[in-house]
Design a protein around this nucleic acid. Sequence first.
DNA 1: ACCGACGGGACCGCCCGTTGTT
DNA 2: AACAACGGGCGGTCCCGTCGGT
Lengths: 199, 199, 199, 199
Amino acid sequence: VSKGERTRERIIEQATAVFNAKGYAGASMSDIMAATGLNKGGIYNHFESKDALALASFDYAVEVLMSRVDSLVDAEATAPGKLLALLRVFAWNIKEPPFEGGCPLLNTAIEADDAHPELRDRVRVALAGLQKRVRAIVRDGVASGELRPAADADAAATVFVATLEGAVMLSNLYKDRKHMARAIDHLREFVETSLRAIE
Amino acid sequence: VSKGERTRERIIEQATAVFNAKGYAGASMSDIMAATGLNKGGIYNHFESKDALALASFDYAVEVLMSRVDSLVDAEATAPGKLLALLRVFAWNIKEPPFEGGCPLLNTAIEADDAHPELRDRVRVALAGLQKRVRAIVRDGVASGELRPAADADAAATVFVATLEGAVMLSNLYKDRKHMARAIDHLREFVETSLRAIE
Amino acid sequence: VSKGERTRERIIEQATAVFNAKGYAGASMSDIMAATGLNKGGIYNHFESKDALALASFDYAVEVLMSRVDSLVDAEATAPGKLLALLRVFAWNIKEPPFEGGCPLLNTAIEADDAHPELRDRVRVALAGLQKRVRAIVRDGVASGELRPAADADAAATVFVATLEGAVMLSNLYKDRKHMARAIDHLREFVETSLRAIE
Amino acid sequence: VSKGERTRERIIEQATAVFNAKGYAGASMSDIMAATGLNKGGIYNHFESKDALALASFDYAVEVLMSRVDSLVDAEATAPGKLLALLRVFAWNIKEPPFEGGCPLLNTAIEADDAHPELRDRVRVALAGLQKRVRAIVRDGVASGELRPAADADAAATVFVATLEGAVMLSNLYKDRKHMARAIDHLREFVETSLRAIE
DNA sequence: ACCGACGGGACCGCCCGTTGTT
DNA sequence: AACAACGGGCGGTCCCGTCGGT
């Protein structure tokens, strides 16, 4: 791995933190210069524009987030276990956030929606990936008989993502994890009483 | 009402639309000049800074939002009726949004969280108001026997707001109302099976 | 005439001098700020971009140049007289240049040719106007019998403009009016021996 | 010839094209990197600054230009023949330009006049060389009796260069060779009727 | 001999807010 | 009450040139 390669990675890591805390528009290249300790020339050697850096940073954030999902969800064998694992990921993210300033998916979805088409498309893909994950778990669970046949995979995907992202917003706004805890309790109850197959 | 008073109102209304679509940092005074048809001096006569206008605009947005809540919720007599009415408010907001660019509460919560303390405090108050509303309905419902005694008013408040705001984000991101529809279906089911008193 | 109007004129006058001396690309907005004594905001209030100012400046330069042509050429009654008057205009421009840095038409033609289509189109129009002027004089002179019937108006237009602009370049390069003087002598001879009707 | 030597030549050749098309100020080292396929270090190994490269490029352009002059003029034996050969060089340059973007002598004379003293001095030398050439031909022609004794060598030098360079400007500006054709016709006529000795 | 990372600075354009003028 | 001129400053981008490495 060359020196430039490592610098590029370092820039992305630092920039992701800055972008997530201040927003893409709110973060200036000067902020990123300060965070990386590099000068203008040093950054523009690796990224041809602020936008290019923003996209790379978002991709990196998604990668980090999904690796957390993978590590906990893949460790579980059953469908209900995987769903509960996903809830623990969000609890983890609140307790030990990978990035300051809240969930990059939510933040970017809000900011990019009307302002930044390219970024918006990437959030769509990323959030669709998260929903697809839930959907697949539910479908597999239905097929294996762990979840009841009537379980609606699409609906579950929306409900999980919406509730959890909404709870991220509330917990960060009030700096109080109780909102996430309540959302998780609710979804756990939802899994147990509405999705899990009746023995 | 004086002429100046009416101008001030007009500025706020137009500015609210601009701020909600572009964000507080992303919207420039030029944007607001263009939206209002006024010149700099005309605006700064009524607001001493961009920030002051932002605060007034946010307050106005909350007012509009809450009046929708009032109009539908107050028309219902029972606790379950009021909860379902709240769901209809969010369906309404998706179908006929009072402002372009999504829910001002959510947008502002995301943008102001780390960047704008004054605004963040107001979002806290506004979202607390919304939760308090749910909480009061649930408590009244429990007291009146319409809802089961075990219904957790605090948890319900968080779950309602989190799920609905999360669904606003998804529906706006994908320009597809189905996410809101699913969230509403879920919450309706939640009301019927977990909150409503068993006869 | 409002104050802003007068400021705008002043900016154009000063900017024309700067642009003509340093070229459009070579002149910075800072140079123009220094020349006008105004700040960025003050200039961008009157011109939406450096380009817009460049175009206005070029138009102004052409105006000044053509007014010199008008004042001397229109004072003459005969075709040969008008042609010789045009030569005196170029002598005047060398002796008392309206702008530092040479002929704006020549400078702009060279710089804009490959780099600035909008400006190039304006130079084309301006230089075509100058040639048209010569052409009209020659045609009128032929019609009136002052010039010989074989006089080629188109060729004369090209020869006059090419020779004089080339002489401007040489005189400015060597800071020596003799090149212009020689070009003028040559063209005067050309008028007398090749164009003027034989009595 | 070493490898470095050949690289140096290649850089100069490519840079000359870039400088002539974009101007010395308008051309960036990035442009030259792109044109040469070399990287910064590769170029700065051979030239200590952009300026040094600009000077070398100008010298190279002059060399190419003068070799065209030599090849056609030296092939002629008589003074009038040499003068007409010079006209054919300019026709050739318009039809098959050695460099994109017009005559390097004219371009550089215009751009460097007020902005780049070192370069300006070199243009002076180069254009003085061209005029000296004409002057020598005329003087030799007078001495040999091919041209009439009254022929003014200095004036002829100025007139030739001014008219031809002016015509280069017009032909390039309008992308139309007719201006050069007219200038050449005029100068040919000038040679025949004003310079050539009367038999 | 050549590459590539990087510093430091200048560019144009836009920003917000003030001030004088209608 | 509203307009319009203007100051001062920061935004992202690109520049030239240096220097460590290959």
